[in-house]
Simulated assay, not measured.
Amino acid sequence: MNVHSIPTGTAPVGPKQQLGPIVFAVDAAYAVPLATALRSAAENNRDAWPLDIHVIHEGIGEETKRRIFDSLPANSAVIQWHPIGTLSFASGFSTRPGVSKMTFARILLPQFLPETCNRALYLDGDILVLGALERLWNIDLGEAVIGAVSDYWLDNVVSNGPRAGGLRVERYFNAGVLLIDLAKWRAEKISERSLEYLDRFPTTEYSDQDALNVACDGKWKILDRAWNFQFEPTQVIARLALEQKLAIAHFVTNVKPWKSGSLSPNAAFYDTFRCRTRFALTPRQRVQSGLKRAGSRLLARSALLRAVWSCTKTAMRAPTA
Rank of each mutant, 00 (worst) to 15 (best):
D217H: 13
D217Q: 09
G218M: 05
G218L: 06
K219G: 05
K219V: 00
W220R: 09
W220Y: 12
K221H: 14
K221T: 05
I222T: 11
I222Y: 04
I222N: 06
I222L: 11
L223I: 06
L223P: 05
D224A: 12
D224F: 03
D224E: 15
R225H: 14
R225I: 05
A226C: 11
A226E: 11
W227N: 08
W227T: 11
W227R: 12
N228W: 05
F229I: 04
F229R: 12
F229E: 07
Q230A: 10
F231M: 15
F231L: 15
P233D: 15
P233L: 04
P233E: 10
P233A: 06
T234H: 11
Q235I: 09
Q235M: 13
Q235Y: 06
V236W: 00
I237E: 04
I237N: 01
I237Q: 04
I237S: 07
R239C: 03
R239P: 00
R239Q: 15
R239F: 12
L240P: 01
L240R: 14
A241G: 02
A241N: 13
L242W: 08
E243F: 14
E243T: 15
E243Q: 14
Q244G: 00
Q244Y: 08
Q244W: 04
Q244C: 00
Q244I: 00
K245E: 14
K245V: 00
K245W: 00
L246F: 02
A247D: 07
A247G: 07
A247C: 14
A247F: 08
I248R: 02
I248Y: 02
I248W: 07
I248M: 02
A249S: 11
A249P: 08
H250Y: 13
H250R: 03
H250A: 10
F251M: 02
V252T: 14
V252R: 03
V252Y: 13
V252N: 10
T253R: 07
T253A: 09
N254Y: 02
N254D: 11
V255R: 05
V255A: 12
V255M: 10
V255F: 01
K256F: 08
K256C: 07
P257S: 07
W258A: 02
W258V: 00
W258N: 12
K259Y: 09
K259V: 12
S260P: 01
S260F: 00
G261N: 03
G261R: 01
S262Q: 06
S262N: 04
S262A: 12
S264Y: 03
P265R: 02
P265W: 01
N266M: 04
N266I: 05
N266H: 04
A267Q: 11
A267I: 02
A267D: 06
A268H: 09
A268L: 14
F269V: 05
F269I: 11
F269T: 09
F269M: 10
Y270I: 03
Y270G: 10
T272A: 01
T272I: 06
T272F: 03
F273H: 03
F273Q: 00
F273N: 01
R274L: 12
R274Q: 15
R274S: 03
C275D: 14
C275N: 13
C275F: 06
R276H: 12
T277Q: 09
T277V: 14
T277H: 08
T277A: 08
R278P: 01
F279S: 05
L281N: 09
L281T: 03
L281A: 10
